[in-house]
Amino acid sequence: MRLDRREFMRAVGVALAGLTGAGCGGAACYVPLPPTPSLPAGLATPTEPTVSFAGAGWQRLRELWYSLDALSEKAKDLEAGQRALEELVREHEDALRSLVEARELNANVADEMQVAFSEAAWHVWRKGAPITCYLPAPYPDYELQGRSDLQRQAELLEEMAKTSQIDEATVAEARAAIERDLAYLTLAEEKRDAIRKQVMEAGDRASWPKLAEIELEIPPECREAAEILVALLLQRDGG
């Protein structure tokens, strides 16, 4: 694969970010740069830079590269992380400008260094930033919903059954599940504890029971109470 100049500098940035241990994670970031056979023969062997890095400006650049690690932490907060990213890139540009003005660095070289740093910073930020377009909402693991939720579900089920002309058997199945869960909530705490204990013990045996085996035994009075509640809320007459 042949990289153009900008792509090459961006790849340099990412590789350096990896080498500074910037916390971008993922083994893929550490893949070495591909060889670039298109380099002129005279440049094929790396040469030692002739500049001295003793000055404060160079020290500042070094600090900015090593501050990428902190950026990976800040990135976990989307807003703050983005501000930190922009600030860091700006600071790097300012530091380069100072070096150019002090005639310690060629302006064209500084431009390329900025490309590498921008890419490195963006790479590190992106690795940590909580952005995704797949399932961004934290859907809860299964847990029984509260009584008011179940009651509202039951109300809406009846409403939607009418407006959507849903198959009666489907409505009945959904209604039965809501009533079962409501009935569970009407169980005394010790009975609920017993069920939880049964489930936990089964888990400890590393052999979970089949769902049918842990089907709730709902006392008739609880089932009736649930049915009454649902009917009452829907203002459905009994009988």
Partner: peptide, 14 residues
């Protein structure tokens, strides 16, 4: 409402 953006290339990529 929750919303997101393209995460290609990140740890949250899919």
């Amino acid at each position: 409402l929750w919303h997101g953006f393209c995460a290609a290339g990140s740890q949250r990529a899919y």
